[in-house]
Design a protein around this nucleic acid. Structure first.
Length: 737
RNA sequence: GGGCGGUUAGCUCAGUUGGUUAGAGCGUCUCGUUUACACCGAGAAGGCCGCGGGUUCGAAUCCCCCACCGCCCACCA
């Protein structure tokens, strides 16, 4: 077969991928023994297309998976996608908004239908993109976090926690996104520095500093530090405070949470609309007065300010206070952190509402132990600290969300649900008793209505390493497999081997998989976590579609080919936490693909119709032979060592250097002497034959080593080599250790 | 506010436990059309290894301080 003069990646990629898929080699080899190598893909959100982070993340996974497969281990890479609750719902809402429709216009059922349509479309796009990248997932096992089996797993987990007493419902001040209209967990909040005004307000006998004067309408106390001499005599007393809606009463309390160095050392306490103040109010049994509703607007108890947004109310109230000479002074340019929704970036309003929580303290203990003991190795190791720090300071997890896209809680109410969207004055004591609802996977029967709430999307992602393998397993399935004398997927492939992901979701996802795996399977879900670098653009800025700083991996694949894209990404993965992505490297990689291609053309030309027979061996006749043999053997050592340590960049650089500057520049040049052209009458037949074998030997073994990184071009070339006893595909060639 | 990471050639980065003249790719310059490849070959220029101290016979590498950039965590209102 004749190879064209330049390598055409698009043609080859289109041809090769379907052949691999049909071969069945992407699935685990049933005959292979040895410890299975298993990865569950970090499921991309069905919110849109893949970005550079995905391209890198999946390339690295594929490198490992392909290498282990060639080592002969049973290998399984499970693909799938994540329903991504709030994020996807937000996307669909935006799309509807362009058509002038809100989710409330459609109603829950119709809206959810729309989201399923969206999901079908983007799931197909994403899986297609992964294939273009060349990843070797077992597509027959593709999962979705809301497919039937997976949903059952999610509800089973909820029921398990409930039965164990780990889940409770309660009214708390939670992070509320007024745009998404839902609660959020602490991890779903982003903090951004912001310049604002610090208002020093006259407050009865106090002057105190606040950034949110509008919350004065919900104040029930003033807090000071217990050791603060200035206010010692006032603690425990009640005062009437003049306000824009008339006088109101506050209690002075002493609490450690107050920083005496801030402002005047006294702070106003708004239990309903600030997490710190809420905690203080619980400690001191202070009344709670809600003044902001779920739209982020002032409630009926706010007199003339009713219906205003908090920002509108702020300026109105400040103006009125100024008129009443209640403003002492205002500091401009005060810098503080504003809390935002991690999906739509609206400002978070803390508000009281009825939510479901998962108790974390006990759950997280074995996970802390697993990370500390090294049962789970986190690489690079500095990230173990990130996980440990979070787990050691963990708070209960708010797992209920007031959106429509997701797993509805397996909670059934007898008399209709008491809304968690209360916009009335809160009454902590007014919680429903357990008798009012039943937790059950199935409807308990007539007269019961299922909870309107859905679960935090991360509640389901936390189960990914085992739910994708069929947990919770039915007894029937187990029996069936036993009759066939086979193990179930869950038995064979849990725990996974490694999880590769981005540092941004170490606590959001990684930690939650770890404690879930330990809780439900009794074993850590994987023994290694590898945190891949984050891809930034050349200026070191986050790649973002909306900022126009993003690069579409598909464009790169179209321009340089999938192999060059993969090689370029690996090459830049050198162990640093960031990659400032350089397209030059992809051009270099593309040139390298062409070099490999042309070296092959040369070797085939030198072979001149020679068909290798028997075991392919390397024979040393000359100094050049000896040199390349030595260099190759040291390459193998360092290459394997670097892959073992996830030093992808160093591995790529080494084989690049060997192939180009040793094999091509030196050895191939030498073979022009060892196999002279034209061949003279009296040529050394043994030397000529041995040199042909040597060329084939080095080339073939380089292809093997290169294949995990650049699968397409190596496969295409492998198919053309006249080697005896060749495998059907390079994918399953024996690894060169 | 706490923690972590980065700072090496014009650009993107290596530099494994401290040890001769600090390396690669891209870019630049010079030369070269041989049986693969001009997406090629041979060669060259280019670096107070962020700043300032310290340890050492010897520091890009170990310690301390500072600066700038980035990330994670956080109930300073």
């Amino acid at each position: 077969m004749e190879l064209s003069k330049t390598y055409n990646p698009q043609e080859v990629e289109k041809k090769i991928y379907p052949l691999w898929e049909k071969s069945g080699y992407f699935g685990p080899n049933e005959k292979a023994d040895g410890e299975p190598f298993v990865i569950a893909i970090p499921p991309p959100n069905v919110t849109g297309e893949l970005h550079m982070g995905h391209a890198l993340n999946n390339t690295l996974q594929d490198v490992l998976v392909r290498q282990k497969r060639m080592e002969g281990r049973p290998t399984l890479w499970i693909p799938g996608t994540d329903h991504a609750g709030i994020a996807t719902q937000y996307k669909v809402e935006q799309k509807l908004q362009k058509e002038g429709v809100s989710r409330f216009d459609l109603g829950r059922e119709k809206f959810v239908e729309k989201v399923w349509e969206w999901k079908d479309q983007y799931e197909a796009t994403i899986l297609g993109q992964l294939k273009k990248l060349g990843v070797s997932c077992d597509w027959s096992r593709t999962r979705f976090t809301m497919d039937e089996g997976y949903s059952k797993a999610v509800l089973t987990a909820f029921k398990h926690y409930w039965d164990k007493g780990y889940i409770y419902r309660g009214e708390r001040v939670v992070n509320w996104c007024p745009r998404c209209h839902t609660s959020l967990s602490d991890l779903e909040i982003e903090h951004e520095e912001e310049k604002t005004k610090l208002y020093w307000i006259k407050y009865g006998p106090f002057v105190l500093a606040t950034t949110r004067p509008e919350t004065k309408l919900g104040d029930t106390a003033v807090a000071v530090h217990p050791s603060d001499e200035r206010y010692r005599d006032m603690v425990g007393k009640k005062y009437m405070i003049p306000g824009v809606l008339g006088e109101f009463e506050i209690t002075v309390v002493a609490d450690e949470a107050v920083d005496p160095a801030f402002g005047s050392g006294a702070i106003k306490v708004t239990p309903a609309h600030d997490a710190t103040d809420y905690d203080i109010s619980v400690r001191h049994h202070l009344p709670m007065k809600q003044i902001i509703d779920t739209d982020g607007k002032m409630m009926e108890n706010c007199g003339k300010y009713v219906g205003m947004t908090t920002l509108e109310a702020r300026s109105a109230i400040v103006a009125d206070m100024a008129e009443m000479e209640l403003i002492d002074h205002i500091d401009e340019g005060y810098i503080h952190n504003s809390s935002q929704c991690y999906r739509c970036h609206s400002v978070i309003e803390p508000i009281p509402s009825l939510q479901w929580f998962l108790k974390m303290t006990e759950l997280v203990k074995p996970a802390i132990e697993a990370v500390k003991s090294g049962d789970i190795k986190i690489i690079p190791e500095q990230y173990a600290g990130t996980a440990l720090h979070w787990m050691e300071n963990i708070r209960d997890w708010c797992i209920s969300r007031q959106i429509w896209w997701g797993h509805r809680l397996p909670v059934w109410y007898k008399q209709g649900e008491i809304s968690n969207l209360k916009s009335q004055i809160s009454k902590l004591e007014n919680q429903p008793s357990v008798d009012d609802y039943v937790v059950s996977l199935e409807s308990p029967g007539e007269g019961y209505a299922q909870s309107e709430d859905v679960l935090d999307t991360w509640f389901s992602s936390a189960l990914w390493p085992f739910a994708t393998l069929g947990w919770p397993e039915s007894q029937e399935n187990k029996k069936l497999k036993k009759q066939e004398n086979k193990a179930t997927d869950l038995e064979r492939f849990y725990p996974n081997s490694i999880n590769i992901t981005d540092r941004g979701i170490i606590n959001l996802w990684e930690v939650r998989m770890i404690f879930s795996g330990l809780e439900f399977m009794g074993k850590a879900p994987f023994h290694t976590v590898y945190i891949n670098p984050t891809v930034f653009n050349r200026e070191g800025k986050r790649m973002s579609k909306s900022l126009g700083t993003g690069i579409d991996p598909l464009d790169l694949i179209a321009k340089y080919g999938a192999d060059a894209t993969r090689f370029g990404l690996c090459y830049q993965t050198t162990g640093t936490p960031d990659i400032k992505f350089s397209e030059d490297v992809l051009q270099m990689a593309k040139t390298f693909m062409n070099k490999i291609w042309n070296a092959t053309r040369f070797v085939l030309m030198k072979l001149d119709g020679y068909e290798q027979r028997g075991e392919l061996k390397f024979t040393v006749n000359t100094d050049a032979d000896r040199e390349i043999q030595e260099k190759f053997s040291s390459l193998k050592k360092f290459y394997n060592d670097n892959l073992e340590k996830y030093r992808f960049g160093q591995a790529a650089e080494e084989i690049y250097h060997f192939f180009w500057h040793q094999f091509c520049d030196v050895y191939i040049e030498k073979t022009k002497e060892q196999i002279p052209f034209p061949l003279p009458e009296n040529h050394d037949e043994k030397l000529v034959k041995d040199t042909k074998d040597n060329l084939l030997y080095v080339l073939k073994n380089c292809l093997i080593l290169l294949h995990p990184i650049i699968p397409f071009v190596t496969e295409e070339i492998y198919q053309t080599l006249p080697i005896d006893g060749k495998k059907e595909f390079l994918i399953v060639e024996k690894w060169t250790a």
